[in-house]
Amino acid sequence: MPNPYIPILTKVKSIISENKVNDIKTIELQFQKEDDYKSFDYIPGQFAEISIIGKGECPIGIASSPTEEGSIKFTIKKMGTVTSMFHRSDIGDTIGVRGPLGNGWPIEELKGKNIVVIGGGFAFSTLRSLILYILDEKHRKDYGNVTVIYGNRDSGEVLYRDVLEEWEKRDDIDVVLTIDREEEGWTRKVGFVAAIVKEVAPSPDNAVAIICGPPIMIRTAVDELVKIGWKDEQILNSLEMRMKCGIGKCGRCNIGSKYVCIDGPVFSLAELKKMPNEY
């Protein structure tokens, strides 16, 4: 058993600035050895501890889908010490990756179901991973209808514009984009995510809702879903917590007896209701 704290070294392959403010970047990492990539066997919704050696480590959700072969992507917002360092990194820089960690979205259980994806802001990264996975030729037939509701503060904050436009053109997925306030040149919806959920009113029959976003958005969107008959078991959430090790040893990410890093980060609303309110 190798030391689980030792990261696999990768190189930065490309860097894409995602928004107008330029505080969100998607970094594509290339593994240096073929074996390393093979051993990095992940599903959508998992995260990895990525580190700039010498600066520190932080847990980030994997934004790429396992179907995009060859490299992995992370979308990183400039927040703290380590994420700021990521923003300063250049193509060819060495970055350590430890993972995949966490349980991820339950892709097996989702099979045969209609899927409603509700996302807000830059929490869309693991949702991108999931949607790309489902839309892949090999998997599309396993899943029912896919509806995506994605809200942002303004049009400058919308991530992954290239894939979103592609999805909008497809007929096997409904994409609803919204921004909080009216803006010149914006032809899609306007309004908070919760209001759009109310408007779209996805049917709870044989469906699962997957929600990721800021806490206030989660709360209001969940309220709307519950109003139209969704059950707690049908609503899935991905949690965030301060983490250090990512493998259930350092202790800080516990909610009750569960650790977000190994038992999560994906929990259903029904599970969350059983846990103490410390998240």
């Binding site: 010498g54 600066k55 090790c245 202790g251 800080r252």
Partner: peptide, 9 residues
């Protein structure tokens, strides 16, 4: 057993 992880340069 709780611990923190830090890089010392």
């Amino acid at each position: 057993t709780c611990f923190d992880v830090i890089d010392e340069n």
